[in-house]
Write a protein that binds this DNA or RNA. Structure first.
Lengths: 216, 216
DNA sequence: TTAAAAAATGACTTTGAGTCAGTTAAATAT
DNA sequence: ATATTTAACTGACTCAAAGTCATTTTTTAA
């Protein structure tokens, strides 16, 4: 009997439809300004039911972050399988990341939030979607590290690079500059006359410069 | 009559003593898990009085962030006046930033929070301490940009660098990697066997590599 | 057709940010 | 010195929203 399987599937679908609803609400008014009642209404369910599927508002938000990370992971996987040297693919990954931040700004914002998690909240729930997000995060690091490893082998990247350290560091650098652009680009544009796009390009150029192999 | 001046001074002192109390409470239990009543009790004042001095819990927290930024600004100013080439001082600024994150982890965490502000909260109050924080932030950027400018002049940094862009980018990169270390170092250490210190050194090395002038 | 299990509900509890009418203390005027 | 005005402070109160749970509805198994 496929009843159990069907139930499993329906449960999954319910999870997804609740996350759909949460995206609509959270992205339109901001997480802080949204209530679980509003999510429930958007999902055409009662609040109690939402709490049957998600342990907290934060868990629900991490459901969104998890989606975002899966999407990004997919993009990265795709690029990692393309043609080209390690260095080339690394650059393309960076561009894809920026494109992602441009095409899915809400997902990108949500992911930035994840980066900063667990600093201020004692006792963030280690189960649920928070944990799942970490798993995807590690997978993303691995994809990057593999490309970097390829680049070292094919000679397009410096041979003395540590792939995993490099992956983590580049991720940190890139996310850091994007975060500044997100939160301060209007100020920077006004005060220093520098646009977000210029900064990203500048940053990517620096990263390329410190990664490439300068053959003698 | 110095009454007005004295009152002004007392107001300032009250602000500070409330921030003192807030630091104790917020840093011990986390901002989210702390209540304004607890801050009031620690400050030996009523809650109503706290709200005479700060417009919201968030504003109070930004009072702490503001302190943190002033402290860091002081460190940076000091280093910027030291002996040495631009490149040398830039490295020392990075080291000082890392030292700061190590010596004042709570202040550092608070500042990271500031970086991420205004992404999720529609209608963050542009007045109050939030605004003051931005001012100090701009000042920090200027200090960096000046050192970089010096480095270009003295030939220790590449001549084709744009000081302000470089300052913002380095700040982003450094903050980004530190953020990862903060939030994920235990995971990374377990999974990949990489310590926070190693990552920071790796990151600084990359930054030096892409900034220095390679004279022919 | 009935009993048992699963899913869903929404009124209720609880917590904590922010307010405000009233009180106390300090400065100024008489 | 005393009265009056102004400033500083108080804490009981309001209100919004997260999270709960006894009850109801729906689905599955007997």
């Amino acid at each position: 009997m496929g009843i159990i399987e069907r139930k499993e599937r329906e449960k999954e679908e319910r999870h997804n439809s609740i996350i759909d609803a949460a995206e609509k609400v959270f992205f339109s008014k901001g997480v802080i300004n949204s209530t679980m009642d509003e999510v429930a209404e958007a999902a055409e369910l009662s609040k109690g039911t939402i709490y049957l599927y998600f342990r907290s508002k934060d868990d629900l938000f991490h459901g969104i972050i998890h989606r975002a990370m899966l999407k990004l992971e997919g993009v990265f996987k795709k690029v990692s399988l393309e043609e080209g040297s390690g260095a080339e693919r690394l650059t393309r990954i960076g561009e894809a990341y920026f494109k992602f931040s441009d095409e899915y700004p809400d997902y990108f914002d949500a992911m930035l939030h994840q980066e900063e998690k667990c600093l201020f909240e004692n006792g963030v729930d280690k189960k649920g979607y928070f944990f799942k997000c970490n798993e995807v995060g590690n997978s993303v690091f691995s994809i990057l590290a593999n490309i970097i490893g390829d680049g070292i082998k094919d000679g397009s990247l410096r041979p003395d690079i540590d792939p995993m350290k490099h992956a983590i560091t580049l991720w940190g650098h890139t996310t850091g500059i994007m975060q500044i652009i997100k939160s301060k680009s209007h100020v920077l544009e006004r005060i220093a006359g520098i646009t977000g796009e210029e900064l990203i390009n500048y940053s990517f150029d620096l990263i390329r410069r410190c990664s490439r192999n300068v053959e003698k």
